[in-house]
Design a protein around this nucleic acid. Structure first.
Lengths: 107, 107
DNA sequence: TTTATAATATCGTTCAATGATATTGTATCA
DNA sequence: TGATACAATATCATTGAACGATATTATAAA
């Protein structure tokens, strides 16, 4: 039977997938995209980045489409897009639960 | 100099702090609160729960206010409330960046 | 050919999550 | 009273992610 998908992405993982809204990307492009998009809040170093890219390839969230010298370029897959949307949904639920908690207060 | 606060809470940690919107809480009350508030999406087992409570005591996010038999009761501190609000803010930023990414698309 | 630079890869450590299991108090009841 | 059940907390051992530091490799420039 098919493996159950991860039900939670870490913050770096989430931003890596977000980067593919720009289309095909290589590692360093992803890193600078994330830093820029987050206003410098999220900075992904090489160790974290390439660990995540390797994991995402194995999980089929992204796919390598070309190698040019050292540069490896990837695209997101449908499966990866699903994971990304699922993560957005999870974040919304967290915030929704928090808002509800505040409203209900003492019960 | 004062230690820099954690800049990110895990999902279980976030929901544990959320539980204190109901006032003082013991471990098992927190666990059932979280399961209920999240509609069963987030379930925190004893290992995770008591690991987090111990960590939060040490970090001064919560404080033990009474012991009755085995039951230990805690309240959230101002410091804990700040961490909780900071986490809400972080979640909002993640969603905001994602929305912006979608809008900008190819650039 | 050296040198610089861009890009990717890996090591070693730290920390959180978690299933499983153990411990410890309190209450019930024969 | 003791045995038993239950509620609540505690701990072990494993797994996996984050990340600073450093190394490797390919291209380009001098």
């Amino acid at each position: 039977m098919p493996k159950k998908p991860m039900e939670l992405l870490s913050e770096p993982m989430f931003y890596v997938l977000m980067a593919f809204s720009r289309g095909e990307m290589c590692g360093t492009e992803i890193a600078s995209y994330v830093a820029q998009r987050s206003g410098g809040r999220v900075v992904i170093g090489p160790a974290t980045l390439y660990t995540i890219l390797a994991k995402f390839c194995k999980e089929n969230y992204i796919r390598e489409i070309s190698v040019d010298g050292r540069r490896r370029t990837y695209v997101i897959t449908d499966h990866g897009r699903q994971a990304y949307v699922r993560e957005i949904d999870r974040l919304c639920r967290c915030l929704g639960d928090a808002a509800h908690a505040e409203k209900d207060g003492g019960r």
